[in-house]
Simulated assay, not measured.
Amino acid sequence: MTYPLLTTSHLFAPIEIGPLKLNHRVAMAPLTRSRAGQPGNVPDAMNVEYYRQRASAALIISEATQISQQGQGYAWTPGIHTPEQIEGWRAVAAAVHAEGGRIFLQLWHVGRVSHPSFQPGGALPVAPSALPAPGKTFVVDASGKGVWADVPTPQALTTAGIAEIVRDYRQAARNAMAAGVDGVEIHAGNGYLLDQFINSASNHRTDAYGGSIENRARLLLEVVDAITAEVGPGRVGVRLTPMGRFMGMGDATPAATFGYIARRLNDWPLAYLHLVEPAMVGTVKDDIVDPRWDALILDMRATYHGVVMLAGGYDARSAEKAIADGRADIIAFGRPFIANPDLPWRLRTSAALNTPDPATFFGGTAVGYTDYPKAA
């Protein structure tokens, strides 16, 4: 069967990010799948095949990848802090490049959304303040099975501990580039460590990293500065979830807080700013969308001078409109890429989409991972 191609489309126009030229604007959003090889949370041959299949994305943003053992919060998620992990990601990057694709590695520290079973020495997870996250994490039980577990009250980071985390981010970026990826994305959203510092609901500190907007944004900006100094700003993206509610996030003055961050990010000529619209809370559709969101995204779009990527429940029509209207420059698709490895082609030709199976999202085998068919 043949399909007519979209001959005029904003979504399929080329764009440049940093030194990279992308053929279109359908990016693959970061997707935690909990299938890293064991032991050691090392990307293996199944992960290589998964990313290779999706290399037609304008840009793949990898699943969230912990910068250190302290940064892990879920079972079977990959890292970028050991030699074996670097080699595993090298195989992934090589496979994506062999298919003509581009890939950024998303750098991740979960902060308080963790469990002592992941922490060095069985310590408590770390956070800006000793406030527990209202959620669960995915751990391995005594039988080796993945189960959901409550997260404990974390320990508040010392300033020395914060400085060590900045060093870990910088080293992780260096490791990622050594693995051959095209750049890195700093995960500063979804209720994880950098987001915990940004939001007033989770940051009750009274030192230089808490209180004012400038102080709560300080850690993120220190991480951005360290990583861009290491790999070059054109190889770095930043992901934010303004007004996101996942894992207890919330800010007293979101327009001022995220407006300040957007303005400050202009200090570095980044590859892009990646904003997540509040269509989902974790893996559940969010039916309570704050009406202030639309004004906030438009303000951030106007404030930030570089490329803006948006994610959050888009389909072909809404993505095309968002780019045509100037709301975004690139659209990142998440769940559709799980079930449709050839998603850009399907969107461009209006081919039917496969439906993803939520039961296979996290953990498991190649079923629901590398076995979704391409369009005929």
Rank of each mutant, 00 (worst) to 15 (best):
L5F: 10
L5T: 10
T8V: 15
L11E: 03
P14G: 07
E16P: 12
G18F: 05
N23R: 12
H24T: 05
A27C: 09
M28F: 03
T32R: 11
R33N: 12
R35K: 15
A36N: 06
P39I: 07
N41F: 06
P43R: 12
D44R: 10
A45W: 13
M46S: 15
M46G: 08
N47W: 04
R52V: 04
R54N: 12
A57L: 07
A58N: 13
I61H: 02
Q66G: 10
Q70S: 03
Q70A: 05
T77E: 07
T82G: 14
V92G: 00
H97R: 08
H97M: 01
A98K: 02
A98S: 09
G101K: 08
R102T: 06
L105M: 14
W108R: 13
G111C: 02
G121N: 09
G122V: 03
L124F: 02
P125D: 03
V126P: 10
V126L: 14
L131I: 15
P132N: 12
P134W: 05
F138P: 12
V147L: 15
V151A: 04
V151M: 09
A156G: 02
Y169H: 03
Y169V: 01
R174L: 10
M177A: 10
G180E: 01
G183L: 04
G191Q: 15
D195G: 08
S200N: 07
S202P: 12
D207V: 02
A217C: 05
A217H: 00
R218K: 05
L221A: 00
E222F: 04
E222I: 01
V223A: 02
T228R: 13
T228I: 08
A229P: 03
A229Q: 11
V236I: 09
P242L: 01
G244R: 07
M247W: 12
M249C: 09
T253G: 07
T257A: 03
R263L: 11
N266G: 00
P269D: 15
P269E: 09
P269W: 11
L270I: 00
L273A: 01
L275M: 13
V276K: 09
E277R: 04
P278H: 02
V281H: 14
K285C: 03
D286Q: 11
D290R: 12
P291N: 03
P291K: 07
W293Y: 15
D294N: 14
D294S: 12
L296H: 14
L296C: 08
L298I: 09
D299E: 10
D299V: 03
G306H: 08
G306C: 02
V307P: 06
Y314I: 01
D315G: 08
A316P: 11
A319F: 10
R327Q: 12
I330P: 08
F333D: 01
F333S: 00
P336M: 06
F337S: 01
F337W: 08
D342C: 05
L343A: 00
W345R: 13
R346P: 01
T349V: 15
T349K: 13
A352C: 07
A352G: 03
N354D: 07
T355L: 06
T360Y: 14
F362P: 08
G368S: 04
Y372H: 14
Y372S: 15
A375E: 13
A376F: 14
